[in-house]
Design a protein around this nucleic acid. Structure first.
Length: 878
RNA sequence: GGGUGUGUAGCUCAGGUGGUUAGAGCGCUACGUUGACAUCGUAGAGGUCACAAGUUCGAGUCUUGUCAUACCCACCA
């Protein structure tokens, strides 16, 4: 016997363990079946499950479970990402607590420490993923730093290097002074800040008392200036071009050059050029062959090229201003709102810094990545993200992939004593390449830089499947079917996967990419720790169960839009789970045998046929919706059918039968009950895997639910159960009236129906008996057509609700309504006729539009015929 | 500056190709412990679908514009 309430906590863990231990998550590897695969967006090993994960993984699990039930050979490839900066930061922070820095340990020991940390703490997110019910194949769990995946990284790196797609260059890059590494453009966030604009003067060389006034937000970089630029179209200042000026304080002479970068309308029209610390200035410097002077240390303090060596930029700024004032060169300081770049992980100001770094020739890789999407080899959902993808890809810059970190894939690069570069997959190969190159054995030193984390993530779709080795999994599951991820990492990950896959595999990594939105707080604000508005999905699971959280995610997921957190709604879906539980209990208490399916073709009862037809309809809708990623529609269809149709109506209507003594009817109803509940479990399973499994097992429905076949829906004969729909309307009308008239619940109810009358009291009986009486009437079938429901009226006499179909009913009003309807249709038809009779329209409009118009005309004609028929029937009744 | 969304009930949101009376959950009001379920049931109140013009027989839905709001990209000496 089922308990009175379903308590998720009692079951979820056991259910999951059972799935995992019995190998339910593994692909069937049945070659005769269609393959379906998803690679999970690898979570950071440092990660803990947040709402974004809960959404992402729920959607994937729904697709995975659905497709598994369709009988496909399904793989959900799971794994985690080594997350270079994030992980190094966490481990360094732990070490700091013991007063140790990574430099105390040295590189080798430090990396060992990270691995150890990963063994002990890196599995958190995977355990949490299990709590969500994710049915991924844990036996194939991968980590981006695994030997196999590392080999994939080295191989593709070497290939790209030898193809000239990876190169080393001294370029201006975004420098993170906290981690002392370069970062890519994507890892920089721009923040609006209140800065100041400083106006001061550089003396012109050899002209006492002549100056050029410049304006800058960063005076401390002036020691790296190697020119001042002025536009040659600047009438006021052009005369200075070609002269030299003097950087005060250090008294270095620099030229004044003509460059269009100096916009006469901005600042003073003269701009100081610091090529080593500004992206625009860097370009100007290249154009004019200017020297590039670095004035910063790796930690963003000023270096010995300045008079303020060792000072932070802020301190140096103050010192510079003070000195300039002292020299009488300072003119004014204005408030100036400006945008300053910050590191997304470190939170410190990013400095453009001139360093040797490694780059991927992204513009070249983008070509194929763009083409594949243009040609429809990858479909974006929602489609408008394609535009964003194209926009970014077409303006892509070289990708800086080197990081001056210790945790990550060390680049497979070795240097000879003369600095010659050997790029090979391992040291042995590098040594032999060097021996060949030099003609003798040489000692090599390995590049210390590691790769951007996203480099290895970019290979995820094929590296996890076994590439570069020959692999059955690769053959079977690549390209993967769907990628489900947040739109916020479209550039970080989706785009990189596209580029890497098109380069190495010559094929797309996935056929469809479904992009969902962010999970926000209940008012639509972004969740953040600092705002304190985060919601922990594990708390939600503890309180309401994983099924409730999952159902919420599914039911809110519409076309990739952001989802607002709504705890009341999660509670509502917990209630839904309870509802299902109790429906099952009801069946159990009424002698339903869930072990066997009834042959639905033998079912005769109208109500039974009605509920079967509704179930079939729902199943095909849920299937259709999931095929097209309409998660909310699918979830709501299940909810509506299970609660609205099955619990509210079918169970109520079944009571008079199951409590009665017609054994034949009882047997049929029990059979149908089992049949329909079984289908609710099947179609509900992708959304609520735990409770459906628990019910399935408790009621001994046979086998493991998650491995059952998705039900095939039977063809409906069109009007099955329409009579019952009509009955529902009648009963609703009765209830409405009774409430309006303030009749007590026990009030007697008389149903007069074409001479047939029944008395009933109590809510279940009322409905059941009315229904039974109605269902017997032959002509209901006929009346249940389009205009029938409004032919019923409910009246009140002497405290007794009267349901009348004939007699007092105002058929005249109905007749009038339909007449109006007919008139409207005639008007519409006239409109169509006019349009189609318009030669200009027919000739000029596209064929499709004309045909649509014709189709509408036909539809209107058909509708008119129906209304006319209904009017004819009414005429007899009036 | 360029781009992409959003604006529908008190709140959070649905409303694939225009089509009878615009829906859900929560909240609210009234009634109800009936042999699945009070994590429940029944009934009800609540909407000029941001605004304006247009297309159409017909607009929440299509077009244009306005306002509000969110986000993305770029730039800002």
């Amino acid at each position: 016997m089922l308990d009175k309430n379903y308590n998720p906590k009692d079951w979820e863990e056991k259910i999951y363990e059972n799935w995992e231990n019995t190998g339910c998550f593994a692909p069937s590897m049945d070659k005769s079946k269609e393959a379906f695969s998803i690679v999970i967006p690898p979570a950071n090993v440092t990660g803990v499950l947040h709402m974004g994960h809960a959404l992402d993984y729920t959607l994937q699990d729904i697709l995975i479970r659905y497709n598994r039930m369709l009988g496909k050979n399904v793989l959900w490839q799971v794994g985690t990402d080594h997350a270079g900066i994030a992980t190094q930061m966490v481990v360094e922070r732990n070490l700091a607590k013991q007063g140790i820095s990574r430099h105390d340990l040295g590189r080798e020991k430090f990396v060992e420490t990270v691995w150890k940390w990963r063994e002990e703490s890196g599995g958190t997110i995977c355990r949490q993923l299990r709590r969500l019910g994710a049915s991924c194949d844990w036996t194939r769990e991968r980590f981006t730093m695994d030997e196999g995946l590392s080999r994939a990284v080295r191989k593709i790196f070497v290939n790209m290097y030898k193809d000239g797609l990876i190169y080393k260059a001294k370029k201006l890059v975004n420098w993170d002074a906290k981690f002392m590494t370069a970062v890519s453009d994507l890892e920089v966030v721009q923040k609006e800040t209140n800065g100041k604009m400083y106006y001061y003067r550089y003396p012109i060389e050899g002209k006492d008392g002549e100056f050029v006034q410049i304006a800058t937000t960063r005076p401390e970089t002036m020691f790296g200036d190697t020119a001042v630029a002025i536009s040659k179209d600047n009438a006021k200042l052009a005369h200075l071009i070609g002269k030299n000026c003097i950087i005060p304080i250090i008294n270095r002479v620099i030229p004044i050059v003509a460059d269009e970068h100096a916009d006469p309308t901005k600042g003073t029209g003269a701009v100081k050029i610091t090529p080593a610390h500004d992206f625009n200035d860097f370009e100007v410097g290249k154009r004019h062959n200017l020297p590039m002077i670095n004035v910063l240390n790796a930690d963003a303090t000023l270096n010995e090229n300045t008079p303020f060596a060792g000072m932070t930029t802020m301190a140096a700024r103050e010192a510079t201003i003070a000195k300039l004032s002292e020299l009488g060169l300072m003119d004014k300081i204005e408030e100036h709102p400006m945008v300053v770049p910050y590191g997304d992980r470190s939170g410190v100001v990013i400095e453009p810094m001139l360093t040797d770094q490694w780059f991927v020739d992204a513009p070249k890789l983008a070509v194929e990545a763009i083409r594949a999407v243009e040609d429809g080899e990858v479909k974006f959902l929602p489609k408008n993200y394609e535009k964003i993808y194209f926009e970014w890809m077409r303006n892509i810059q070289p990708w800086c992939i080197s990081r001056q970190l210790w945790w990550g894939h060390q680049m497979p690069i070795w240097y000879g004593p003369d600095g010659h570069i050997f790029c090979e997959e391992n040291e042995e190969d590098a040594l032999s390449a060097a021996a060949e190159f030099y003609g003798h054995q040489e000692k090599l030193t390995r590049e210390t830089d590691v790769l951007d984390t996203w480099f290895s993530s970019g290979l995820w779709a094929f590296s996890t499947l076994g590439w570069p080795d020959k692999s059955e999994f690769l053959d079977m599951f690549y390209p993967t079917s769907v990628l489900v991820t947040g739109f916020d990492i479209i550039f970080f990950w989706v785009a990189r996967m596209m580029m890497m896959s098109m380069y190495m595999m010559k094929r797309v990594p996935f056929n469809t990419v479904y992009l969902h939105g962010l999970v926000r707080d209940e008012h639509g604000h972004k969740m953040s720790k600092s705002k304190g508005n985060t919601v922990n999905p594990l708390d939600m699971i503890d309180t309401y169960g994983a099924d409730a959280l999952r159902f919420f995610m599914a039911a809110m997921e519409t076309q990739g839009r952001d989802i607002n957190m709504n705890e009341a709604r999660i509670a509502g879906y917990r209630n839904f789970a309870t509802k299902l539980w109790n429906a099952a209990r009801y069946g159990e208490m009424n002698g339903v045998d869930f072990g066997h399916d009834i042959d639905v073709n033998t079912v005769e009862g109208k109500i039974n046929r009605w509920v079967i037809a509704k179930a079939e309809k729902t199943i095909s809708k849920v299937g259709r919706d999931l095929e097209s990623f309409r998660f909310a529609d699918a979830a709501n269809a299940v909810y509506q059918f299970a609660w609205g149709d099955f619990c509210d109506w079918y169970i109520e209507m079944s009571k008079p039968v199951l409590y009665g003594d017609d054994e034949k009817a009882k047997a049929e109803t029990r059979g149908v009950f089992a049949y329909v509940l079984r289908r609710i479990m099947l179609m509900g399973h992708p959304f609520m895997p735990f409770i459906t499994t628990q019910i399935w097992q408790s009621l001994q429905m046979g086998g493991e639910l998650m491995l059952q076949s998705w039900p095939t829906s039977r063809k409906s004969n069109g009007d099955e159960g329409k009579a019952v729909d009509w009955v529902i309307e009648v009963v609703s009308a009765i209830r409405s009236l009774r409430a309006e008239m303030n009749l007590p619940a026990g009030a007697k109810l008389k149903a007069y129906l074409s001479g047939c009358s029944k008395e009933a009291c109590g809510y279940a009986k009322e409905m059941g008996e009315v229904v039974c009486a109605l269902a017997k009437l032959e002509f209901l079938e006929q009346l249940a057509g389009e205009a029938a429901s409004s032919m019923v009226q409910v009246g009140l006499t002497d405290g007794v609700v009267l349901l009348e179909l004939k007699g007092v009913v105002d058929f005249a009003a109905e007749y009038e309504r339909l007449s109006k309807n007919l008139a409207q249709l005639d008007k519409n038809l006239q409109g169509y006729a006019e349009k189609l009779g318009n030669a200009a329209f027919v000739e000029r409009a596209p064929q499709k539009v004309v045909e649509e118009e014709k189709k509408r005309q036909e539809e209107a004609l058909a509708a008119r015929a129906k209304v006319e028929a209904a009017l004819a029937r009414l005429k007899n009744l009036v």
